[in-house]
Amino acid sequence: METTTIAAIRKDESERRQVYLEDARFAWRPSECDVIDIDRFEVGRGERLFIAGPSGSGKSTLLSLLGGVVVPREGRVEVLGTDLSKMPGRDRDHFRADHVGIVFQMFNLVPYLSMADNIMLPCRFSHRRRQRAQARSTSVKADAMRLLADLELDRPALLARPVTDLSIGQQQRVAVARALIGSPEIVIADEPTSALDEGTRERFLELLFRECDTEDTTLLFVSHDARLGRLFSRCVLLDDLNNATTEAFT
């Protein structure tokens, strides 16, 4: 009786659990020492998690692990209940296309594609996200336009412009639209605000939160700027998680 309850709770917990790391160790090269050494780390569904850490502490590396771009030397990296470390590279790329949206610090856009084409990119690599975008607004293009409108980027003058002529803030909003199209379960943002000024930064975060809320998307946000942490539902310091000694400046 009691065991079933515990099992039920465990099951419920693992369903809520979207990201789970266990004894994950990673080094960029076999000869180098570990950049990531995390015993246990989990993120629940719909969480807005802020990961802070100084430059060089391994924040981007952690996100690469979660995105399935690299695999740990040992241990588990589970995303949506799937252990990425056991997957062949091709399936991990597929998995990332289907379930993870990524926003970088800057230079997020493919320079030769229009704003709408940039946003639709994930739907070209993921059947699932294409279908979900279509289900939501009849066509992928329409969904891209919906997101542009949500992010206040639908002015005709902007749409006609090459993406390289957009301001950094506008580029970052396009990148958010791209991360969100086709409603992936997880959005990973690697210091997307570091190139923005303070006012723009707050507005950008508001937009990001609002969009993530509508789809109950889990947001993993890394930054070296710990002051942003107060806006998030949970805040962790990478150094608290990570046993690896990095060459980070402290």
């Binding site: 296309a97 970088f104 990119l121 994930p122 993921s126």
Partner: peptide
């Protein structure tokens, strides 16, 4: 290289 990283992030494989 940035463009390549962006493409990788949206699900492009190295083969792509």
């Amino acid at each position: 290289r940035r463009e390549m990283a962006v493409l990788r992030s949206v699900g492009a494989r190295p083969l792509h």
